[in-house]
Design a protein around this nucleic acid. Structure first.
Lengths: 411, 411
DNA sequence: TTTTTTAGTTTATGAGAAAAATTAAATAGG
DNA sequence: CCTATTTAATTTTTCTCATAAACTAAAAAA
């Protein structure tokens, strides 16, 4: 509120115009001027700088309906920047190298039991993975403009500190700093769900929306919040835990120690637990019940298995109660559902929608859209990569400067 | 994000310096310059304008420990501005006229069954009340710089529209516009809990804190959210409903139609319902059980009645589960508890704290303070008044200009 | 006293954005 | 085909506004 940002104004202007181009895809100078309330002359100057730095390019002109000189459309130059993204999970580390528009140029999954080895070892794995991925994408390591890391747990992205993670007993060493030192490339770390949220904000369904919530359905249930165009992370940087909101104090025990958390019903873990329970109780049987995975269960339920459908219905209902709570608290413009098991689609989200609509006053849904974002395998790592992209969009000049300095030092 | 505010820069600077003075109470020019990162010369110029407009005054100088010219402390001039606040409830309308620091200069309560009469009648009551209150405070109506109205329900403060209120069946006419027309004075309307939140932000425990949550315990349970120094109201302006988050789907029915909402346990209404139930079941007896009010119950519980203490304990526990959910979602810097029945103090908040501490990971409480703000009778109306004050702080020049224009027109 | 230190003010300068003027590129119409 | 008109984009000029630097004011220390 009180403190006025003291970063150079020119950088801010570049960033806001670059933002406009990213959000719209293709846009003319005139329209940028209208949208940003800047003068046309200023837009000309700033776009000239961005063009000179090759961050944007002039594309075709608009075939106008009226007479007059045609508007020249400006678009991002995807090849201008490459970044790397790393997602750390319990049993694997996944990687992606993306372009300036978060397009995945190469990806990689390395199986590794992360928790059983020291952090240094994880750093080795990550270094190896990034180098390999960059090579596949035919990008020189020195041309990687930033590295983003997504990891479950309570992460303070500004300090890089990890307050807690399910992967390690204690997590004192800063993984971010380890990687930053190895590559001498700007490196960022965030909670994994927050990273996916940033990806949605910049390159997904949240594009152009300044207030929305992302709910991820995976092994657990995650959440990310964007308010006023910024990822909301709270006082300690650990905001937006949704999976462990208590919905039913007499519900099943959750891995967090409480009972009846949303996650204990509506996550991959919760659903698998319900399936195993149904097996144990003889309500449901399957030849390879012990080896069954969540995608299997989704496939079987889709084929019409009534017991499984019922499990999904119950899970969707609980999720709906939680989502209704969120909608009442935030009244967001948009709510995006995604995550590894978002592909269960209407099995889960149908009943969720029903519950939400039956429970809430209609005013809460009038300007709020619930949207489903299909999940791709590389989305975790892509989300992490978008952490780095975010920073580049915030100060494009700085990034270019840094890179050319590194190139000079290397030469 | 993209749009850059186009209001005059000078007004913005005045506002930010005025903010600094309000937040600190007394502050020297040097310190303002340091805090706002503005040059001393600019601070001199802007404070000169504010002094000329009599919005601030030079107070005593600091008795310094070192040598050199002493710093002159600047403070608000409380008498510079008067505003009126109106809180509309089901059975009464309360009023306050306050000074520039939200100090209550006069107050009034008018009993009236608001819901049984048309909105026009309510407007009559409000006009009468404001005129009376202004007279008591010895303030000329023409000197009232703004009017704020607080009312329960879903209110869109920018349009003035009321999407729903428990007071009226339908609520099409804009109460705000009615009052604005009668007085020709800038008038603002907000949800009542949000109004109290604004009062906390500007003149209460939220002063100087940009991210906090207010929870009000009254007949219901209300909430207000301040994020990034701004009241958060969501896409429809109806955000921050907390009382109707479901904690226990098998709990008691709530007036909203659902079961087991927080409000059905932890509000004045919920507690009184539990007391009556205890009476009916013969667990508790009292001579005038039928006439018992919430303050009576609080007094009896304080004296050590075990059954009542137990009811408060249960209510506090449910509140704690809800609060823990909020803390996980927002991880705010501060959480402020207030409202008519906040005076029940540790009866309710003791058990609440216990639950919160037992349920949450310690990281959530490290930088978060739970604070209790004692409640005064005039706080509803004062909260409403602060809606108007808020606008004045945002554009002080405009306000002064408007008022002198009105004075000129009247003369 | 005089010197030193810090607060606050005035003046001079410079950055940066917009307005105005100009150039570029298109269409419509004769 | 040429000219007028329209709209886009650019260049030049102007102006606003914040800062830096110089200066004045007021205090304590020497």
């Amino acid at each position: 509120m009180s403190h006025i940002a003291r970063e150079p104004v020119s950088s801010m202007r570049q960033s806001s115009i670059l933002d406009e181009i990213r959000k719209t895809g293709l846009i003319s100078r005139v329209e940028i001027a209208e949208r940003t309330c800047l003068s046309r002359s200023l837009v000309t100057n700033i776009t000239a700088e961005l063009l000179e730095k090759r961050l944007i390019v002039e594309k075709e002109t608009i075939v106008s309906k009226s007479r007059g000189r045609r508007r020249v459309l400006l678009g991002l130059n995807p090849g201008a920047v490459s970044v790397a993204g790393v997602k750390v999970s319990a049993f694997q580390v996944s990687f992606a190298v993306t372009d300036f528009e978060a397009g995945v140029k190469s990806s990689l999954v390395t199986p590794v039991r992360t928790g059983e080895r020291p952090v240094e070892f994880l750093a080795d794995v990550i270094e190896e993975g990034i180098r390999h991925c960059a090579k596949t994408a035919k990008v020189d390591i020195a041309d990687i403009a930033g590295i983003g890391i997504g990891i479950p747990g309570f992460i303070n992205s500004s300090t890089g500190a990890c307050h807690w993670t399910p992967l390690y007993e204690n997590c004192d060493g800063s993984l971010r700093d380890l990687i930053r030192e190895r590559f001498q490339i700007p490196t960022y770390i965030e909670n994994d769900a927050n990273a996916v949220t940033v990806a949605e904000q910049w390159f997904g369904l949240g594009k152009g929306c300044d207030d929305f919530i992302v709910v991820t359905i995976e092994e657990g249930v995650g959440m990310g919040i964007v308010l006023g165009g910024k990822l909301y992370t709270g006082a300690n940087g650990i905001a937006a835990e949704f999976g462990h909101m208590v919905i039913d104090p007499s519900g099943p025990p959750c891995r967090c120690g409480k009972r009846g958390c949303i996650e204990s019903f509506a996550s991959g873990g919760g659903i698998m637990r319900a399936v195993r329970k149904a097996c144990a109780e003889g309500l449901w049987r399957h030849d390879d019940a012990a080896l069954l995975t969540m995608p299997d269960v989704i496939a079987l339920a889709r084929k019409g298995d009534p017991v499984l459908a019922d499990i999904f219905r119950k899970a969707g209902h609980v999720l709906g109660i939680g989502v209704a709570g969120l909608l009442q608290i935030f009244n967001p413009a948009k709510m995006i559902f995604t995550g590894e098991y978002a592909n269960s689609g209407d099995l889960l989200f149908g009943p969720m929608r029903e519950t939400v609509f039956s429970v809430l006053h209609k005013a809460y849904l009038e300007n709020t859209r619930l949207e489903l974002q299909p999940w791709a395998d590389t989305d975790w790592a892509r989300g992490a990569a978008s952490l780095a992209l975010q920073e580049i969009y915030k100060s494009p000049v700085e990034t270019i400067r840094l890179r050319s300095e590194r190139a000079a030092a290397g030469a």
